[in-house]
Design a protein around this nucleic acid. Structure first.
Length: 266
DNA sequence: ATGGTTGTCCAACAA
């Protein structure tokens, strides 16, 4: 069984590439982030035509998450408990479509689009840290309730947990960039303390998952590792292999993120 | 050539 996560940066703009990728990669479950559409604009037939069930959560042109599966798609949830809301300048806060879950062949798969943070002193950074803290409390409680639960926290985490997860840590620190600050990294580590782990890194040392569209970041090899599929202990034990599909970042019409694939035994 | 992006509600914001 193969589970993947991919921030597609607009599903409509990426429909042909997503379909080609699904066919050649042959994954069983795909957690999608940044669909950038509401349900009425969602390309349902893309998944139906390829024998995937799909569930979507999107309310406007921002964010949007989905899960496609051909091994079952049960008990869909579109938020986690106490998920913080956000409204810029405090106006009309909403629970943004950044998290959804479904059970696929016994695995509880979460598609997560963690808030970006925007700047170290931006209100969006407080939102990001709070959002992660509440998600972590939820995730810890799921494991306490069932230590054998198979859970994947898959998505765009918008955090580079280690210095080697960006092309030049000095550049990030000197420019007061987000994604590498200690509070963000502590928020990520809290999931590891709660029992979740990253099964992809051992198979992909030194690899990145994201390259900014600007500044020729991809041809220059200037990327970041910010997309993760964290696994509960029972699920981590099943991981046979994992890879980051850097080829998918190439060429015209690519997302700025590459898909991350985890292969499970059985 | 000292710049060089992409997506959305096509204007201004988000990443």
């Amino acid at each position: 069984m193969k589970i993947a996560t991919w921030n597609v940066n607009s599903l409509r703009a990426r429909a042909d590439r997503v379909e080609d990728w699904l066919r050649r990669t042959d994954v069983d479950v795909l957690a999608i982030q940044e669909t950038k559409c509401k349900d009425e604009n969602f390309p349902w037939e893309l998944f139906e035509n390829n024998d995937y069930e799909v569930a979507h959560f999107g309310v406007n042109q921002w964010n949007g998450v989905a899960i496609a599966s051909r091994v079952g798609l049960d008990d869909v949830e579109r938020t986690f408990g106490g998920q913080p809301s956000f409204g810029k300048g405090g106006k009309d806060p909403i629970q943004e479509p950044r998290a959804m879950a479904a059970t696929c062949n016994g695995v509880r798969v979460w598609s997560l689009y963690v808030p970006n943070g925007r700047a170290l002193d931006d209100e969006h950074m407080e939102y990001k840290l709070q959002w992660l803290d509440v998600l972590k409390d939820n995730a810890a409680s799921w494991l306490e309730r069932d230590p054998d639960a198979q859970i994947a926290l898959a998505g765009d985490w918008n955090i580079a947990p280690r210095d080697e997860d960006v092309w030049d840590i000095d550049f990030f620190v000197e420019n007061r960039m987000t994604h590498v600050s200690e509070p963000e990294r502590a928020a990520f580590r809290a999931f590891e303390t709660a029992g979740f782990s990253d099964p992809v890194r051992p198979f992909t040392e030194g690899a990145f998952t994201y390259w900014d569209y600007t500044q020729l970041r991809f041809p220059r090899g200037e990327g970041m590792r910010i997309d993760f599929a964290l696994t509960s202990p029972a699920l981590a034990a099943r991981v046979n292999n994992a890879w980051i599909d850097r080829e998918e970042r190439k060429g015209k019409g690519a997302s700025d993120h590459a898909p991350v694939v985890v292969e499970l035994a059985g």
